[in-house]
């Protein structure tokens, strides 16, 4: 009989624990710091309890910009994701290289956070909403195209074969077999990602990629707590509204 396979759980756990202990000493991650945050956090946060509504019209405009960045990011995402989806589905890709290449590209898109891509674009094409929308579009393509390609791979082979046997071209097979079969997944994935993109757009201003994030950053840096509080209220309000709308649409779809 073969010996029982050795378990590596214990020494890996030990290594992680050791790293944690050593790291906490140098980074100030310990109970003392946690205690002081809990003690001083209350008074610090209470400074944000009085929102300052003076600048409201301008801030609402900036909030609108945020919304637009999120929506355009989603539109760019759709333009990128739909063609990539077809290459990234094993059973529809024209060849193995197209399949592997597009899958790897999607992995890269997913691995790069929106804020990082936005930072690169603000250096390259200048500050503003376009950089934000592009960054969001590229990052979310990594998720959307993967989800849709996986859905296309789950469609039974017979569905494709039935249409193919009629003499349909690759495009016609995609249009009449793949697309209708994943229509519902497409709608709900797009809705979810639009919701997520608008939430992300609220923070992208921090790196100068448009929207209300930059106002929040300057208000915090200049200790303008009233204005910062107003912005946070606006952001939370926007997210709640988007959430309600997307839930409504989601329910209609089912």
């Amino acid at each position: 009989m073969k010996p029982r396979p050795k378990s590596h759980v214990w020494w890996i756990t030990g290594l992680i624990a050791l790293a944690g202990v050593l790291g906490s000493a140098s980074l100030g991650l310990n109970l003392g710091t946690l205690n002081s945050i809990l003690n001083e956090g209350g008074p610090a946060l209470s400074r944000y309890s009085q929102p300052d509504w003076q600048d409201l019209p301008r801030l609402i405009g900036r909030l609108g910009e945020t919304l637009v960045v999120g929506i355009w990011g989603t539109v760019i995402n759709l333009f990128l994701a739909v063609p990539l989806t077809i290459f990234a589905a094993r059973n529809l890709a024209p060849n193995r290289f197209a399949f592997r290449g597009s899958r790897e590209l999607l992995n890269v898109f997913r691995a790069l956070p929106d804020a990082l891509i936005a930072l690169l674009f603000t250096q390259g094409i200048g500050l503003g909403p376009m950089a934000g929308a592009l960054a969001i579009g590229i990052h979310s393509t990594g998720f959307v195209a993967k989800a849709l390609a996986d859905a296309m791979e789950r469609v039974p082979e017979g569905t494709y074969e039935g249409v193919r046997a009629c003499g349909a071209t690759r495009f016609q097979v995609i249009r009449f077999a793949a697309w209708p079969s994943i229509g519902r997944e497409f709608a709900s994935t797009t809705l979810y990602i639009a919701d997520r993109n608008i939430r992300v757009a609220t923070t992208l201003g921090v790196v100068g990629a448009g929207g209300i994030g930059v106002d929040l950053l300057t208000s915090l840096r200049t200790f303008n707590t009233g204005r910062a509080a107003t912005i946070m209220v606006l952001i939370v309000g926007l997210i709640l509204i988007v959430d309600v709308i997307s839930n409504q649409i989601q329910r209609r779809l089912q």
Binding site: P156, T159, E161, G162, A165, P180, S181, R184
Partner: peptide, 15 residues
């Protein structure tokens, strides 16, 4: 020129 009928019908269920 060749039509085909399958055991599992092979239609597109959502169309």
């Amino acid at each position: 020129r060749v039509g085909m009928v399958f055991q599992q019908f092979n239609l597109v269920p959502r169309l």
